[in-house]
Amino acid sequence: MPLFDYSLLLTGKYHDMLVGGLLLSLQLLAASLLLALPIALVVALLRLSPLAPLRWLGFAYVEVIRNVPLLAHMLFWYFGAPELLPEGIKQWLYAGHIEAYSAIIALSLYTAAFMAEDIRSGIRAIPTVQFEAGRALGFGFLGTMRRVVLPQALRVTVPPLISQTLSLWKNTSIATVIGVAELMYQAGQVESATFRSFESFAFASAAYLTVSLAITGLATWYHHRYPVRTI
């Protein structure tokens, strides 16, 4: 078994490739998270809406997205969807970073489906009487949500959302499939260039674990700092 070659990871071309991949992975994480949260909130509210067709829409979104693997989503948004677009936009996309855009769309929509369920559970954890009290004061559905229910639901919802962020972080690795040059892709590239699988994968694994640890640590901190308070 070849000895562990530190030099590979610390300096030079391969080090740069791996670090570049890590940075892109983090960018994917940030972009997808920023898109996923508002989508998730909207879908959660759809699922809780008093109007049946809206509830149905929310339900359909969650179930369709969740029951298809992320890989298939990525393949669709990269290979399938652009073909449906008008020629002009298609050219512009292909000229730019279409792989990254497809990956971000796939990741955002996928993560939003899971987050919507967590947000919905968080809102439902708040006793209905709170919502009724808000309505009794004269606020509409959205007004009550905004002023009474959501602020309370936040504390319950944040830990599961952080857990979904952890999943999102790990899911960014699947963007490899459509050619995004993130960490996993670069680890594979370094491996095929140097045949040193252990070092390149060890670097990638350490990077994934470190960020995972940071995210988990965030959840623990939040739980201590902002415990859920009920009456």
Partner: peptide, 22 residues
Amino acid sequence: FVVRGLPLLMVIFWAYFFLPSV
């Protein structure tokens, strides 16, 4: 903890590229 902190793809790569050499 380690397995849950890694993407499945990473585990697959370890199994596919590294395990045979060991």
